[in-house]
């Protein structure tokens, strides 16, 4: 097995967390007010992600206009320096990136009230400055925050979380080392509900364990939702104060 002790008998992980603890989670919104309608900066563990949302706006091509709802596009930019070792090739147009983009599109399509914005386009741009596991989940959180910042109507938060399964123990919010050592599941959870807008299992996982993995995943996602909500309210509160001094 690996020379690291992924999960010690005392119940500690490599970075000192317990099995059911999420990583440090810090976020801010309205970070790029001049460059986009909505923006967020997210640090989840060592993941650092900038998200920009432009729109709803006039589509750049008339063919993109849909008279019933807004068209959406997502572009994910994994920078070459985002990992510890600089990648020799550009990640643009990589198959994996295209897959992630499509999955993100599907995740948010149902949660945004696209029918309110006919004949418009919503463009989402994500820049990953640094990644350390559970990237897909962090992308979901970053996009949720930026969409809310843009004032785009949504049914609820979508919070992303990834869970690993170490032997029989689910580990919440995995980092790179853990991700490489075990099977992981990524969830996109809607608000405080137990509904999933995304479930992604890319490795083998015993089916009878899936339920416990989902349970801790949903709990973790709810925790992240609360953290995002807290930040959002703090921000909103400051804006309201500012507006009242007008």
């Amino acid at each position: 097995m690996s020379r690291f002790e992924i999960y010690s008998p005392e119940g500690l992980r490599l970075d000192g967390r317990r099995w059911n603890e999420v990583r440090r989670f810090e976020c801010s919104i309205n970070t790029h007010a001049h460059a986009a309608d909505g923006s967020s900066y997210l640090e989840q563990g060592n993941n650092k992600i900038i998200t920009l949302v432009k729109g709803p706006k006039e589509p750049s091509l008339r063919s993109q206009a849909n008279s019933l709802k807004a068209t959406m596009d997502v572009s994910v930019n994994i920078t070459r320096f985002s990992k510890f070792e600089r990648s020799a090739i550009s990640h643009k147009n990589e198959r994996r990136v295209l897959e992630i983009q499509t999955a993100l599109l599907r995740t948010f399509e149902k949660n945004i009230m696209l029918h309110l914005y006919p004949r418009t386009q919503i463009s989402i741009q994500v820049h990953i400055l640094q990644q350390d596991g559970g990237m897909f989940a962090s992308l979901i959180n970053g996009i949720t925050l930026a969409l809310i910042d843009a004032g785009i109507a949504m049914y609820d938060y979508v919070s992303g979380i990834s869970i690993g399964l170490f032997d029989t123990t689910p580990l919440l919010d995995v980092n790179t080392l853990e991700e490489n050592a075990m099977s992981t599941v990524t969830l996109g959870v809607i608000g405080k509900s137990e509904k999933l807008s995304l479930l992604s299992v890319e490795d083998k996982i015993p089916l009878d364990r899936l339920e416990s993995v989902l349970a801790i995943g949903i709990a973790g996602a709810h925790r992240l939702r609360d953290l995002m909500d807290e930040e959002l309210r703090k921000h909103a509160h400051k804006r309201v104060i500012k507006a009242s001094t007008k």
Binding site: H32, H34, A35, L52, N77, T79, R80, F81, R86, H127
Partner: peptide, 9 residues
């Protein structure tokens, strides 16, 4: 030395 430049906007 690898210098990677990202112009966000």
């Amino acid at each position: 030395i690898f210098i990677d430049i990202l112009v966000i906007s």
